[in-house]
Nucleic acid binder design. Structure first.
Length: 469
RNA sequence: GGCGGCGUAGCCAAGUGGUAAGGCAGGGGCCUGCAAAGCCCUGAUACGCGGGUUCGAAUCCCGCCGCCGCCUCCA
């Protein structure tokens, strides 16, 4: 059974079949680098990180491109406010985002192109669109894409040109031939970053960059294009129009994937809403896997609720998953072969359920449920007295599948490092105190260790300790 | 107004024609000197409301109510 993916273009789940066997060309809309990135950005990037990991798990070679928009109105405006150079400002936030990629545990995209470095390709494509009559040049050096020239315009977002004309809130530029026409190239205004072009100095419009980077780095047709649902219109709609008009090939993108937005209360998290939490602020309080767990617990196409309760729930769920990796009890007697065989069978069953869920449009909540079931089976076996060797296979499966999600289930238990002998010594003494029923002293050791971040647990099969997270 | 989507237990969240996964929180129990963890049992006669189709609907159709996103920069 092939992987099924929901395609925004057709509004259906379709069997996933890339253009070239075994190779997936994937482009993800990256950030506009004008300010600190927030969790909405992180969530989106993480969704496609998880999808990429699963495709690779499934044996595909994924070519993953994520862009940086480093030329843009917002960057220019903000740089002006701060009295900085726009390109320097962009560079600063690109470096910061690079740090986020590392800290969030994201796989590195293979190419991370920047608009400022793609100007020749952009110019080439705009020229091509003019030649083919899909674009026109205005006096002053602006170039616009002429939407009515592309009869299937609106096919991604389900809009018709007639509807669009009425909804226009901004006074359309009277020089445009049609109100929906959009800028491919903007003539430079004084003090703005600009590049030479056949139409005079200027800079690219918002949408053309993605077309150029796609065609340059992945080719004229790609398999997956991802981004937030708020990009469907106009950004991706325009991207299709330009790209298909330029190349004459359709579809430009075989599968359009759009993730739901991160919500705070009833509103999406956004800079303009003022309700955002920056990635840096979140990571001060929580580890990256907590965010990853939040993303996994909800299907990627649905909105994701962000609040204190959902963060806590993700934290608890992560702990539960990690609990499955705990070692056997010190004096575990071991299980009989049939029981071990059963556990290993349960692990294989978990893998099957995991794959079935992920094959169905990357249903991470259902796949996660399979992992929780496996954790319960491992815990049952451990409680029954399994040894480390007997748990090994099931735990390896758990570790591997959680790794496909990008989660790190640091094996817990006898911590490495210098403190282990000291803790063990204290626990030996405590054991003797317990034998003599000197509870107050025994508890003093346990409480003292707890204050130092060491959790002591007395099990039927011996006493264990671990670092508290 | 147009386009897209959502409404499932206290909370989060799968399921989209065959009789409601999973996680968190809660209750009871086992284990324990106590604790913690784990394990076992427990929760919606029920899936926004009202009709309809069907042997059968949370799942399909119609209507209504509420909510969100997009139509302007936005992951």
């Amino acid at each position: 059974m092939a992987i099924q993916v929901y395609n925004t273009l057709t509004r259906r789940k379709e069997p996933f079949q890339p253009l070239e066997d075994g190779v997936v060309r994937m482009y993800v809309c990256g950030p506009t680098v004008y300010d600190k990135a927030h969790l909405g950005h992180a969530m989106s990037v993480m969704v496609y990180d998880i999808i990429r990991r699963y495709l690779e798990y499934r044996g595909y070679t994924v070519r993953h491109v994520m862009n940086y928009t480093d030329v843009d109105d917002k960057i220019i405006r903000r740089a002006r406010e701060l009295g900085e150079d726009p390109m320097a400002l962009a560079e600063h936030y690109i470096e910061e985002f690079e740090r986020h990629i590392r800290e969030l545990g994201l796989l590195q995209p293979h190419v991370k192109p920047r608009v400022s470095q793609e100007i020749p390709w952009i110019v080439r494509i705009v020229e091509g669109l003019i030649e083919k009559n899909f674009a026109y040049v205005l006096e002053g050096g602006d170039v616009y894409f002429h939407v009515p020239q592309k009869p299937d315009y609106g096919k991604l977002s389900g809009r018709r040109l007639e509807d669009l004309q009425e909804g226009f809130r901004i006074e359309p530029d009277p020089r445009k031939k049609h109100p929906a026409d959009f800028a491919l190239w903007k003539a430079a205004k004084p003090g703005e970053p600009s590049w030479d072009s056949p139409w005079g100095p200027g800079r690219p419009g918002w949408h053309i960059e993605c077309s150029a980077m796609n065609i340059h780095h992945l080719g004229e047709q790609i398999d997956i294009h991802g981004g937030g649902q708020d990009l469907i219109f106009p950004h991706h709609e325009n991207e299709i129009a330009q790209s298909e008009a330029y190349t004459g090939k359709a579809p430009f993108v075989r599968y359009w994937l759009h993730n739901g937005l991160l919500m705070v209360g009833d509103t999406k998290m956004a800079k303009s809403e003022g309700n955002f939490v920056t990635i840096d602020d979140f990571l001060k309080e929580h580890e990256a896997d907590v965010l990853r767990m939040m993303v996994l617990q909800s299907h990627y196409r649905r909105p994701l609720l962000f609040n204190e309760a959902t963060v806590h729930q993700a934290e608890a769920a992560l702990e539960r998953l990690r609990g499955g990796m705990r070692p056997a009890f010190p004096q575990a007697p071991g299980l009989d072969a049939a029981r071990v065989h059963e556990l290993n069978h349960q692990a294989e069953e978990a893998r099957r359920a995991f794959e079935e869920a992920m094959d169905d449009d990357f249903n991470t909540p259902a796949a996660l449920a399979a992992l929780f079931t496996l954790v319960r089976h491992i815990n049952q076996a451990r409680d029954a007295g399994a040894t480390d060797a007997q748990l090994r296979k099931a735990q390896a499966t758990l570790l591997e599948l959680a790794g496909v999600f990008g989660l790190t289930l640091t094996p817990e238990g006898p911590a490495t490092g210098d403190i282990a002998p000291f803790v063990d010594l204290l626990l030996e003494v405590r054991q003797e105190l317990r034998r003599q029923k000197m509870w107050a002293l025994a508890d003093r050791i346990r409480d003292g260790l707890a204050r130092l971040g060491i959790q002591v647990e007395d099990t039927p099969h011996g006493t264990v300790w671990r670092r508290k997270s």
